[in-house]
């Protein structure tokens, strides 16, 4: 499986994502600049964390209009897997590929620590390697991760099992219903504030993030075999 790691001006978790793919799951990954006009030849797109365009205006608001994002949108509409972590999640909601918005953390602090996540939907193409209700140890590092949506959207998210990860014990940012990560209705675009790519080796504290990328690869291989 060949992954595109998109680089926006101000991305800073692109190296971690590339490492997770190449050295964690042993698949191919290439950097793709924000100016790129094609994603031909890629099977999955990864939007990294960071502070694209300095978080000017709102996190993700300006990146959303970069050249490559129209291609990412097309890629997503074709049903191919797109994953955004942290700033990548913020870009996905600004681009309208995921519902809701990410607000300033309730306590105004930038929070950088390891949290406990609960897998509340292990039936997505990103989470099949996890057990239902499994608890994961994954780091977060953000100032604007307070997920918000209106009641109608929340009801839809629940009805369609679109909430994939929640903060299990201690919600760091004040998000609605302890939401940490959601998936789109079609099941191919997932965004989350925590960083699974920073949790792929025990020596760095946790390897719970590895199975996230393994799920992506296994489900891609399975789908390709079916075609």
């Amino acid at each position: 499986m060949r992954f595109a790691v998109i680089q926006f001006p101000g991305s800073n978790c692109d190296v971690d994502l590339l490492h997770a793919i190449r050295d964690g799951v042993g698949e191919e990954a290439e950097y793709v600049p924000h100016t790129a006009e094609s994603l031909d030849g890629f099977d999955g797109v990864l939007l990294p964390g960071g502070f694209s365009y300095g978080d000017y205006l709102r996190s993700g608001a300006i990146s959303r209009f970069s050249n490559v994002m129209s291609e990412v949108t097309r890629f997503a509409e074709e049903g191919k897997p797109v994953f955004g972590t942290c700033n990548g999640f913020q870009i996905l909601v600004e681009a309208g590929l995921l519902p809701g918005a990410l607000q300033r953390n309730e306590n105004l602090h930038f929070i950088c620590k390891t949290v406990e996540l609960e897998v509340v939907n292990n039936q997505t193409r990103f989470t099949t390697e996890y057990n239902d209700r499994e608890l994961l140890t994954i780091p977060v590092a953000h100032g604007e991760g307070n997920y918000y949506c209106d009641e109608e959207t929340l009801a839809e998210l629940k009805a369609n099992d679109q909430i994939v990860f929640t903060y299990a014990s201690d919600n760091p940012n004040g998000s609605v219903e302890n939401i940490a990560g959601i998936i789109n209705r079609q099941g191919n675009v997932l965004g989350m504030m925590p960083h699974p790519e920073r949790a792929i080796e025990d020596i760095l504290g946790s390897s719970d993030g590895l199975r996230f990328f393994e799920s992506m690869v296994k489900n891609f291989v399975k789908e390709t075999a079916e075609v």
């Binding site: 205006l57 709102r58 608001a61 909601v93 600004e94 519902p99 918005a101 607000q103 918000y148 949506c149």
Partner: peptide
């Protein structure tokens, strides 16, 4: 599309 996020 840009200046406001009409969700919030």
């Amino acid at each position: 599309k840009l200046l406001a996020n009409v969700v919030m």
